[in-house]
Design a protein around this nucleic acid. Structure first.
Lengths: 179, 179
DNA sequence: TTGACATACTCAACAAGTTGAATATAGCAT
DNA sequence: ATGCTATATTCAACTTGTTGAGTATGTCAA
């Protein structure tokens, strides 16, 4: 799985604590991996054991000490190797689709309500991504630094993904209403 | 998780053995859940314990006996209840996006090759879905039976999903070539 | 001053998903 | 005759991901 690599990739742009990583994951902005507190701390310990990251304890006043983790050259090497290997499309596990598949068992209105709820969620995420995209506001990525260009590509993926959901929900609601 | 419900939904349209379910999952056609052999058999045992499915041993000549599982009325009731409950969007875990995020660490050509591979995979899946869609070949779903309409909705989702990937890969390859 | 919220980390236990192998029968090609 | 593919199921061990609680400290508002 890619959790260790995701953490290494996040640390690659600067040292972070477990807490920082958690916030980065949950705020999401263009991130295509997420993890809970427990997974992150567990994984950081493992990465430290393997020498792929090194911690630095930073005393803070008024707050608990924090452990700032940095990626090591071994960590970077591992990340580079991993990127070069081909990866398969993620298998899809979409609850909503299973429900739609068996939707004929229940009142169509129940499914319509659910689809409207989902459409709104995806619409909101779409708008958040679009806002970020407009912040960058440039026609050709070449004007940006490479790391920022990479970030933008994931942002474009997010926009397309959310848009495809919004459109599908719209279409499906219309169809279900006609039943 | 939705594995038990997915199995119940699959059995809802007719009795199947573990092996049949596995083939249904792996052939995929519009399916938005997948599972390994082990998961399926394990889950079928649990569902049997709970009285949500009942097995019927069918002796076959020349082949091992098969156990055909049917959904019970309890199973159907559970499925109906589950469908009525709201579900959250699936959290995304996309290895390729993590790689793209850290792509600046490696030669752009490596990433371009990977994107082309992925684009082709999604293109093939898209064409498979489109072929199924053209088999149905009707402008308004209302002409179809409800279960078939439901199936079609998931198929439309699949088409939009794969198309969004193909388009994004295309766009990203163009950008990366400009680097 | 009590409670809510944010920072910061740890431990324990369980559920879900993955990997690998073992068992058994039959057909088909080399 | 040997190995490969397909049908059909089961067991064991492991890694990931989820859930819930527990330990600290400080700020801000009611």
């Amino acid at each position: 799985m890619a959790l260790p690599h995701t953490i290494l990739a996040a640390l690659n742009t600067g040292a972070q604590s477990g807490y920082d990583l958690l916030k980065g994951f949950s705020s999401g902005s263009g991130c295509f991996w997420q993890a809970t507190q427990q997974q992150i701390y567990r994984e950081l310990s493992k990465l430290e054991e393997q020498g792929l990251v090194v911690p630095e304890v930073v005393p803070q006043d008024g707050r608990p000490d924090k452990k700032l983790y940095s990626i090591t050259s071994e960590g970077q090497a591992l990340l580079r190797e991993w990127i070069a290997q081909p990866s398969k499309p993620t298998p899809i596990r979409e609850e909503l689709m299973v429900k739609v598949l068996a939707a004929h068992l229940v009142d169509p209105q129940i499914v319509i309500d659910e689809l409207q709820r989902r459409q709104q969620q995806h619409q909101e995420q779409l708008e958040a991504y679009q806002a970020l995209w407009e912040c960058v506001g440039c026609a050709n990525l070449s004007d940006l630094s490479m790391p920022l260009q990479c970030k933008c590509m994931t942002l474009r993926r997010g926009i397309r993904y959310e848009q495809s959901w919004v459109d599908w929900c719209e279409e499906s609601i219309v169809w279900l209403r006609a039943v």
